[in-house]
């Protein structure tokens, strides 16, 4: 589904990704772990098409298409989704208009007719139950006045509504208490299938108790330095990132 080869990117002349190789197949969950500043969020931003980053080399193919050649909205329509680490508050844009417009654009791209108002509300209700987002979204602006936990659930709600092929969760666990974390993880587990895939970016192993990855990668100074099974996450949790530093730099 996603094939990344030697991807390099910089921001403000600072090289952050120094050659990433990664392949994710349908039905898989990959986790990327790494210390602060290793480039985890940059990778997520670059894949989603954030214009703040400059690609300096390498390639990324998504379902055979050159991802780096597509605008952010085209990537989304092709089935890529980024759950933001810091979801943006947009005063004045209603949640309903936002979700409706996004769904409509993606359905149009798939050649599907727009949902009726009734169908939309039914779908929304069902998906809100899935992520246990009880707050009414009607008459509220996107993420405005939402608690940290509500914002993260709102990201997963959008994920559930838009049904992407590949979802990147960028530190979705940060700032979540254990109950919210369980809810978010349960939502993701219900959404996973043989047809889709997840890339879970996290600093801590805790989330991976609930969303069990098929592969864990360790990102360090802009490169994936180690890949392995879910046990790698446990190992990392136990030994911390210092161990890695010694191994990589020393080796």
């Amino acid at each position: 589904m996603l094939k990344i080869k030697n991807l390099q990117a910089k921001v403000d002349d600072k090289e952050i990704l120094k050659g990433i190789d990664l392949e994710i197949k349908a039905g898989e969950i990959h986790a990327i772990m790494g210390p602060n500043g290793s480039g985890k969020s940059t990778l997520a931003s670059v894949l989603a098409g954030n214009p703040g980053f400059e690609i300096t080399g390498g390639e990324a193919l998504f379902e055979g298409k050159d991802l780096l050649d597509l605008a952010p909205e085209e990537r989304a329509r092709e089935g890529l989704f980024l759950a933001f680490q810091y979801p943006v508050e947009i005063p004045g844009v209603s949640n309903m208009t936002f979700l409706k417009t996004a769904l409509e654009e993606i359905r149009t791209h798939k050649g599907l007719p727009p949902l009726s108002a009734k169908e939309f509300m039914q779908l929304l209700k069902q998906k809100q139950e899935l992520v246990e987002l009880k707050t009414s979204l009607v008459n509220r602006s996107v993420n405005e006045g939402f608690s940290g936990g509500e914002k993260k659930r709102n990201e997963i709600l959008q994920l559930a509504m838009l049904e992407p092929k590949l979802a990147i969760l960028d530190e979705t666990d940060s700032g979540l208490d254990i109950d919210a974390l369980r809810v978010v993880a349960a939502g993701v587990n219900k959404l996973r299938s043989e047809q889709n895939a997840f890339l879970v970016i996290t600093h801590y192993q805790r989330l991976l108790d609930y969303i069990v990855p098929d592969v864990v990668h360790i990102l360090f100074e802009g490169r994936i330095v180690k890949s392995g099974s879910k046990d790698l996450a446990l190992q990392l949790e136990e030994k911390g990132y210092d161990w890695l530093r010694e191994e990589v730099v020393g080796g």
Binding site: A48, G49, N50, P51, G52, A71, P72, E73, R75, A76, R77, F81, L82, F84, P87, V88, I90, P91, G92, V93, T97, F98, T101, A102, E105, I106, H109, S141, V142, Q158, L162
Partner: peptide
């Protein structure tokens, strides 16, 4: 225009033009 908000809308499949309109209307 708030570039962050614009990017956020676009990552949900909303076209640049539509996203800009939404943000202007919101303003």
């Amino acid at each position: 225009i708030d570039e962050q908000a614009l990017f956020y809308l676009k990552t949900r499949g909303i076209s640049e033009e539509r996203a800009r309109k939404m943000l202007i209307e919101a303003f």
